[in-house]
Design a protein around this nucleic acid. Structure first.
Lengths: 356, 356
DNA sequence: TCGTTTTAGTAAATCGTTTTAGTGACTTTT
DNA sequence: AAAAGTCACTAAAACGATTTACTAAAACGA
């Protein structure tokens, strides 16, 4: 057991111990005015006439007393919070987490932080949460897999959002390409009876994913059998929803040799349902996922999937918001509506050539 | 393609459009003083003498102009940020996400938000990130699976932290119980040669988990074979690290019939390594995980595991911080050092009775 | 030597609240 | 009729920075 005992002060009454020294204190100590300190510490033009010696005194004192400008005072004055808001469905499924990693990587460099809220697909929170963020004076909003249900003039960038709204940039996957990769892969392996699992209606990629897949199938002369299509239902981020969907398809008794799932999580559930009914993956049925979550490579069988570069998408979203903040007076008409990133087909062991 | 077009204002120069109306504006409009409005809107004792009629006028105007107190001004005055800081290793593995869901559930009710930072197990960020949070005036800190490397007088609560520091509360699993459940389960199934995968050194549960498991094994007369123990290495939250560890154990050529993995993610990697060398799970080797992540139920085979109530742990951590904030002048000596939550054994298909 | 420029600063306003300490005008008590 | 309340409010300080508009002295140029 670690006996890493550290001592901190006996009680917590002393608020000031945390807030530290103010510019006023420091100025009094140096016998200078607050103004001079501010000018020097922020390296403003007004400090030009102040001799280096005095500047050094100021810097030394700031260092010695570990002066940090008060965040609220500074933000109040500057009307700037150095904070973005991020709206996500919820955090535990790994999808949003990957995007947030990218967001944070970019923001940290610029001294920005972010507040997160989860809407859990609830209509009230979808409106309320962003409003709370705006009251908190966030300078911009990143919405991950989340529809925009709130008005604002702040910069807004979505990740996997598909609402066409003036002034809002959507960072999206090249879905045409993704569908081509996925359907093409299965087609090349000889599959002609393919089952599809559609996403939940609330998921912002559901529609476009389905449209592009339909097109890619049509192009190859595949027709989509309604009995081989099921939709995910329920908002828990668990493979269970995929399991239920696959059970439904199996109940249709229509033969098929491959499944293109909405995402990896539902692919995992599908595999379970298939194996329960005696079908082996990939010998009897090939399964293709989407996203490439960490576990995908280590499932049994390892999952073939379409990778979305979620980390990059998070970075791109954050960069886009920061760019807009840096440019004063942006013409909304010139904000790009869409930024596209490319998917990648990752072939593993859950797909195989169709049996003769 | 959704044609959900909405119109927002043509350009973004108008800062005020977002910040809204101030108390000053409102007071001028009503012909009253700022003081009166503040008193009435905050329902302070000073408003007792103000007639209901005037109060109603104020409320109506506030409603009409959608008045919201400026967050910075209020916080500057009150020296209160209504914000906590949360420090995590990183966000994409689902573990921290689950905890954050719990944290948010509690904070949202109280009008609190939280800022997140990831330290990526880097020593510099382990110090720097919490300091940044403190400069941002967070009122308390929740550290998830993260060692405390910074001094502060703020309330600090860890989730799965084991440093014994005065004034810091650790929300932890009952590890004795967890070890008993895990080792007991394998023992009951007849396993006597058990392999173990230890966590990475940076993971705060590694030590205690190992100690309690060793005890539980000893208690049953099992001796732990060094060749059957491997430690996770590398800080990516991927099953790959478990795969590598299991390869190492297999290379030792020492026979065993069960594996107790550090967590579900490494259990997944282990299963892959076992099956690659021709061992079937659970017929030849039983595999026991830890955490019960979402995917655990849907692996093939479905993973037997020890569930940690991460969502509850997040809630408990947040509640504990808020409690400390509500009580002024807390005696540090009276802050509980540990809050314990109970694990649960979830039996699925990756464990089975040992072959005769 | 007078006028201008440079040097070395500072006072005060401002951001938008909250809070303390009042101020007059009425009303009630004795 | 004077003293003591109550009623309906308000002025001003404070939180801690930034920024604009100054001042007073020294140095410089003609």
């Amino acid at each position: 057991m670690s006996e890493n005992k550290q001592q901190i002060s006996k009680n917590r009454e002393s608020k000031t111990s945390e807030t530290g020294v103010s510019l006023k204190n420091l100025a009094a100590h140096l016998g200078l005015s607050i103004t001079s300190l501010s000018l020097v510490l922020n390296d403003k033009p007004g400090a030009n006439s102040i001799p280096q010696e005095t500047k050094d005194r100021i810097f030394r004192a700031a260092e010695e007393f570990n002066y940090r400008p008060n965040y609220f005072a500074r933000s109040l004055r500057a009307q700037k919070s150095f904070t973005l808001g991020v709206v996500v469905p919820e955090l535990s499924d790994g999808y949003s987490g990957m995007v947030l990693n990218g967001v944070e990587a970019v923001l940290a460099k610029e001294g920005y932080f972010y507040l997160t809220t989860s809407h859990l697909h609830r209509d009230d929170l979808l409106k309320h949460n962003p409003q709370m963020l705006i009251e908190r004076q966030v300078e911009g909003i990143i919405a991950v897999d989340t529809p925009i249900r709130f008005p604002t003039n702040l910069p807004v960038v979505t990740v996997s959002g598909h609402d066409k709204i003036n002034g809002i940039t959507n960072v999206v996957l090249n879905h045409q390409h993704a569908a081509e990769l996925g359907v093409g892969h299965l087609f090349t392996l000889g599959h002609r009876q393919i089952a599809f699992i559609k996403g939940q209606d609330f998921s912002s990629d559901t529609k476009i994913r389905w449209e592009t897949i339909s097109e890619a199938a049509l192009k190859r002369g595949l027709k989509i059998e309604p009995k081989l299509v099921a939709q995910l239902e329920g908002d828990i981020p668990s493979p269970e929803v995929g399991y239920v969907a696959m059970k439904k398809i199996l109940a249709g008794k229509k033969p098929f040799t491959a499944v293109f799932a909405f995402n990896d999580v539902s692919a995992i559930g599908s595999i379970r349902a298939l194996e329960e009914s005696g079908l082996r993956v990939p010998q009897d049925v090939s399964v293709l996922g989407f996203d490439d979550i960490y576990a995908a490579a280590f499932l049994n069988p390892a999952l073939t999937t379409i990778r979305q570069p979620l980390f990059e998408m998070g970075k791109l979203a954050a960069q886009t918001v920061l760019n807009q903040l840096a440019n004063t007076k942006i013409d909304v008409a010139k904000i790009p509506q869409t930024l596209t990133v490319e998917p990648e087909l990752v072939i593993r062991n859950s797909t195989a050539a169709v049996k003769k």
